[in-house]
Design a protein around this nucleic acid. Sequence first.
DNA 1: GACACCGTACCTACTAGTCGGTATGTTGGC
DNA 2: GCCAACATACCGACTAGTAGGTACGGTGTC
Lengths: 207, 207
Amino acid sequence: MTDAGHESRRKLLDAALNVVRARGYTATRVEDICSAARLTKGSFFHHFKTKEELALAAAERWGAVTGALFAAAPYRQLSDPLERLLAYVDLRKALIRGELAEFTCFAGTTTQEVHQTHPAIRDACGATIRQHSGTLEADIAAAMRQYGVGASWTVESLALHTQAVIQGAFVLAKATQDPAIAIASLDHLRRYLELLFRSPQAQEERT
Amino acid sequence: MTDAGHESRRKLLDAALNVVRARGYTATRVEDICSAARLTKGSFFHHFKTKEELALAAAERWGAVTGALFAAAPYRQLSDPLERLLAYVDLRKALIRGELAEFTCFAGTTTQEVHQTHPAIRDACGATIRQHSGTLEADIAAAMRQYGVGASWTVESLALHTQAVIQGAFVLAKATQDPAIAIASLDHLRRYLELLFRSPQAQEERT
DNA sequence: GACACCGTACCTACTAGTCGGTATGTTGGC
DNA sequence: GCCAACATACCGACTAGTAGGTACGGTGTC
């Protein structure tokens, strides 16, 4: 799937990613996506049977694009797992710039909107979030071993917590129209991770 | 405003709060709200000129209802400001039960969906979030003084961070259809607050 | 000429908002 | 006490416009 010959299909998906993040899923018309992709409805319904099918494909593409971005990031080469984790947060901070629709998360935005009405889209978006969250778990587990931090919380829960902070930071940024608030929240997340792994008190937690 | 004689108006607002949280703002029809309130469109457009005007009034009501809830909570009587802050998180955890649409946040959900398309609704929701966040600032400031914690972060940013975690926890809960994940994230938030105010390392931060 | 691809025109279901109408008070003059 | 006049609250059928989806025709490529 996603062969080389599907240039228009890719254009439609990328257009959908941008327009839906700006306008929301329900409020974006398929014509909005078509005009953003400089195509027409004929092309749209040639590639996708329904609007919902496009959303599912867009969620899949979102996971692929973001997955490739973080997998190829330079910080992945750091030897210390905690350093990798902190560098991940730094990268997320660095990505917060420009327009809201450009740096916010398609999966989080969409799943929040349609979680009740479109279960298939919700599951597709949820899967990308969980998958992305899962990429952090190896580093968290390694950092736990290396820094001798106890197990009053699980690896999975901390990975998901980082995603919650990021998603929540986006919500706040939209509510206040101020990306700086999102960055400040990621600073708090970073401070939490440092305290969690480096403070003596946390290391005594070996229950 | 919100006199005793506006029973139907209040019913419509409460119905909107529930239906919009479940279905999203754009996807909910005014008829959905009417039938949930056991009223008709005639009544609806008697009380509100447009659907957007209802959303603005609903945001205001959301702020009033939640504001009253937390202002009247027993934990407000605790003498230690840090204890009040931690008890706030505990209360937020305790409120996470039942259906998603019952415990998630109208303001956060709606602002995320319409932030670009309906600036007035976004601002109304954003105002309730900021206002609620502001109610935490006095306790945070008092805890900073009492526990001698340094100022590498601002009172406002920590208050907003708690809201970001809460909003993000809701997003994750919707994405995964698992409220337990939201609770686990609030556990991490609580742990952060404890580390921030109680760990020796954090207290050395007096810059 | 078969097929993938894409454009234009059109169909149809749906929905925000309108409009005439009814019912229920409420005020004030006598 | 009564009634005219008016305001408020509500109902439900209707309208105008919108948006998802379809039909079909054209074009390039193999």
